[in-house]
Amino acid sequence: MSSNNTTIGSGTLKTAIVWAMSVALGGAAAQALAQKANESTAGEAQHIAATVCFACHGPGGVNDNPMFPNLAAQQPAYLENQLHAFREHKRAEPTAQHFMWGVASRDLDARLIAAMAHYFAEQPAAKGIPGDPKLVAEGNELFHKGDPKRGLPACASCHGPDAHGAGPFPRLAGQHKEYLLKQLHLIKDAIRNAPVMHGVADKLTDSEMVALATYLQSLN
């Protein structure tokens, strides 16, 4: 009886072990498949970066053309938001329409957008380009302290003390001065939709914008 019980028990045990192993194997296989899918998505993203994005943004998202932003080491959440905004035609300044609407809607879906953002976030950042020391000092001051009298917050409070960005707030360090200036003007003129920044850009004078962009371009 007991041996029968044992038999039954061992049978149950065997079944349980087989099930457990199946589940484990299945889980491992599923995990492996998922990983492979991720790898292939990552590979696809890298391929798109190297055959489409590179043409304007440069190899690895670093370029020397002020028309097109550096993307290397950019915050992935920010990149994702922007790519979705291009795809859904919510970011609508002329250059975005001319170049990015098509790329984001023809070549990318949500899965690839995440992978592209991840790819560029992982690339080594563009090196800073030193600028006029006076402008750099002025930009540095404004970036870290803002101007409480005018209700101008410190840029560093969102973009980080080293301007490397955080989550949806973009990295600005090492970005092209001309690109930064253009974006500040587009935001000020409400051509680029950025509610948080609009209130800030509104308060900045043209010369303050130049100082900030010069300072930010000089950072690594």
Binding site: H98, G102, V103, R106
Partner: peptide, 11 residues
């Protein structure tokens, strides 16, 4: 081609 890429002529 612009319809194919979704991009503007001046790209």
């Amino acid at each position: 081609f612009a319809r194919q890429t979704g991009q503007n002529c001046n790209a």
